[in-house]
């Protein structure tokens, strides 16, 4: 016979073919996988940041005649400001706003009696279901648009606009855009300004409110001398003192 006697199991003279177990121990495999999972959980992020797109006007000087003048009755200027602590970190945010033109008399003086500037603490924009703070200001002024958008949104949620979901979405988007740009409605033009101390958060919140309240016309502008004089007056610092500081 061609079999090689290994000598060990010569007792019975018959060699058993050893049956290999088909079970593989997966414990090390699991260990390795767990390590890999830990690695991925620590070194990666699932959160993708969102972006808020803005466009600023060009820095170039625009000829006076070419400037688009905003209708006085529609304009509202919002100035953001914050208290800062000793290290320059903003602590408390404030909001100043006025409607129409800044109250400048013919002599170029600021007279707050002409057009009062209002101030408000920067509150969370909603409490107990009612709008407050900045949201209240904008919602009131953009009432006509907000009401229409809300109606449309309700229809969109109930999927009444179109048969399929995708069509429902696109119809909603198109109609919402139409409403936002409908010039027959009373829509405000918001001019957002921020003092050097204002926190970035308040700026983003203000821009965000534009989206929430469906305001299509808004702009970020530089704070002017008149604005700061008015703010000083509201804060109760006399005009002369402010210029002396500068």
């Amino acid at each position: 016979m061609a079999q090689i006697d290994t000598g060990g199991d010569s007792g019975k003279g018959k060699s058993h073919q050893k049956k290999m177990s088909i079970h593989v121990d997966f414990t090390p495999m699991v260990d390795m996988n767990m390590l890999l999972i830990t690695f991925f959980m620590l070194c990666t992020t699932m959160i993708k940041s969102q972006t808020l797109q803005i466009s600023l006007p060009t820095n170039e000087k625009v000829e006076k005649e070419q400037q688009n003048k905003v209708k006085q009755s529609e304009a509202i200027t919002v100035i953001l400001d914050s208290d800062v602590d000793a290290e320059g970190v903003p602590t408390k945010n404030y909001l100043y706003y006025y409607e129409g033109m800044p109250p400048v008399t013919e002599e170029g003086q600021i007279d707050l009696a002409l057009n009062p500037m209002k101030t408000e603490e920067f509150l969370p924009n909603e409490a107990n279901g009612a709008a407050q703070g900045m949201r209240k200001i904008f919602q009131e002024r953009n009432k006509e648009v907000v009401e229409r958008i809300n109606k449309l949104k309700a229809q969109w949620k109930n999927k009444e606009l179109a048969s399929t979901e995708a069509a429902n979405d696109s119809v909603y988007q198109a109609r919402a855009k139409e409403i936002r740009n409908d010039s027959t409605l009373k829509r405000p033009v918001v001019i957002i300004k921020a003092t050097p101390n204002a926190s970035y958060e308040s700026l983003v919140t203000a821009l965000d409110e534009m989206q929430i309240n469906s305001i299509s016309r808004y702009q970020i502008d530089r704070i002017s001398h008149n604005d700061s004089v008015m703010m000083m007056a509201v804060k109760g610092i006399p005009y002369g003192q402010e210029t002396a500081e500068k």
Binding site: T51, L56, T58, N59, S82, A194, P196, N197, Y200, L207
Partner: peptide
Amino acid sequence: TYEKIQVVMDNLQTMKMNKFSLM
């Protein structure tokens, strides 16, 4: 503070990159 952001925004504006996004 807005001061710090404004420097960057101003520079972008000067370069006519007036459209950008905020994260």
